[in-house]
Design a protein around this nucleic acid. Structure first.
Lengths: 290, 290
DNA sequence: TATTTCGTGCAACAAATGTTTCATGGCCGA
DNA sequence: TCGGCCATGAAACATTTGTTGCACGAAATA
């Protein structure tokens, strides 16, 4: 039986806890229960809140093998670092060719993408949807691989707001549209590394025009996220494969459309029904029966 | 002009960023890109890593409306506090009013889609990829909302097999292409309920021509799955929202492209590199900068 | 061109931080 | 009961922190 994982400073703490003096136990439990505050706030601050002496924190750190509170805090900070760049299922890298290798690749990819979806922040999407709801007009821009996301978003939004949604560059060169952005309108730009010049130009034009800029990107530091009113993040690199994953971006786009639709209330619903009956009448779809 | 959502200090930062002096922009971008370190490490530490003056951080904070760096950091710290995620885990569907309803909708949707991905059968994807690998030519068809999936697949496959991949209907009416299907070629049709007549027609033409038919659909009984050599299933209706989910279809498309690429071996890799250098030379992308 | 404004780095400053020392008080063994 | 031990809190310590005043230089203004 191996040690119960020395990896985490928190587990070291829990292990050593019972053999510590009473006051140090108290402080130790406090740290374990509030490890986020432990990494961000100051020692004296914590002491005040825990009702203990500041020195107790230093002593605690030394008692479990650190040189001082600073070092313990640093360990906790590293343990909490989000950019842990998920060491996904391990395999798949140096995988030798074999009959199941392809299946394994698919499985890994799907798992990794599934894991990435819940990490997408929901709040910004809801806020962005509100902006879309209030926008007089909605522009959508995405290039190269992101074009598919842009078109999906365009398609879904047009189902219930046909006249107010438009892809950038459909009715002529992009530059024509860039000058048409107005305050009160919303511009959605989708992109991830490597970023295309075209998408950055759209974002800048949107920002300068005073329109609301919504960026769907893989990083807060993406150039099209600069000056954006809303940034919706997804993980493009999280999944194995030769190409960044667009699953997250698609999921965001669909959520955005769904919330915007829900904000539209009865009017949006009426509009959608109208569109659907029209499509049915044109017999675009195969009749459902069977 | 209305305030663009004061929700996150990071969004305030991004909004103000473009109108800031150059050095402050640098520092601001650094903070946005390393917000975790910004909350945990000291100002001087960050300054050293960013290659900037410590004072720049204080000035940045003041420039975007805070009394100083301490206050900005405190705001960032609160924004990152993990407890934000917990209150929603208990999903209450009946909660209609309130600003959190939208967030709950997004969270539910993302969770549902994440749950759907691992249920996608991997084996058929790997087999279909082998067919693609052997195909002399690859046709892709998808209409309405599925067009986005078709275009993504087309884009990714063309990265390493440019001359052999083509969207149905790009160079004239669909019917022209339907007569061009040949044995030894592969045709991918994407569709889910309600099925468009166009996609069914492509599938039938493919089947009659003797080409390999790959259907990406939501059901085995989908009309375009009839007579298909490979059927790749995904769950379109699994997630809440007014519109069926395409996340699964996108994930399948990307996996398909990834495995096909992997089967292509060195030749595909060379081809991809060649394409990439060509794109870089045309300065399509923003240079990564340092 | 002369003048002002503004952005920027440097260095000194006061406040706050983590640590250490010291005095106190309770506990157990002689 | 006495003497040593250890846990504990308070205060003093050296460092480090965030901040601010100042000087220099570039860009804008007249």
């Amino acid at each position: 039986m191996a040690e119960p994982a020395k990896s985490s400073p928190l587990s070291e703490l829990r292990i050593a806890l019972p053999s510590l003096p009473m006051r140090l136990q108290e402080v130790g439990r406090f740290v374990a229960a509030n490890d986020y505050d432990a990494t961000t706030r100051s020692m004296r601050d914590l002491a005040a809140e825990a009702g203990a002496d500041p020195a107790a924190f230093t002593r605690l750190a030394k008692a479990i093998g650190y040189s001082g509170w600073d070092e313990l805090r640093a360990a906790l900070t590293e343990a909490r670092r989000p950019s842990q760049t998920s060491p996904f299922s391990g395999r798949a890298r140096g995988r030798r060719p074999g009959p199941n290798a392809d299946v394994a690749l698919v499985t890994d990819k799907l798992e990794a993408e599934a894991a990435g979806l819940p990490r997408i922040p929901a709040q910004p999407i809801a806020e962005a949807a509100r902006s879309l709801h209030e926008a007089k007009r909605i522009w959508i821009a995405g290039y190269r691989s992101c074009r598919s996301v842009a078109e999906l978003l365009n398609y879904e939004l047009r189902l219930f707001r046909p006249e107010q949604v438009q892809l950038v560059g459909v009715s002529g060169p992009d530059d024509l549209d860039l000058g048409a952005f107005r305050p009160g309108e919303a511009v959605i730009v989708i992109g991830f590394l490597p970023y295309t010049h075209a998408s950055v130009r759209v974002a800048q034009a949107a920002h300068h025009s005073g329109a609301t800029l919504i960026a769907i990107a893989d990083s807060l530091s993406a150039p099209m996220a600069e000056g954006a009113d809303h940034v919706l993040l997804f993980e493009a690199a999280s999944s194995p494969g030769f190409f960044p994953s667009l699953t997250g971006a698609i999921a965001i786009a669909q959520s955005l459309a769904a919330v915007t639709f829900s904000l539209g209330g009865m009017a949006a619903k009426k509009r959608l029904e109208h569109t659907e009956t029209r499509l049915t009448a044109a017999s675009i779809y195969v009749s459902e029966k069977g």
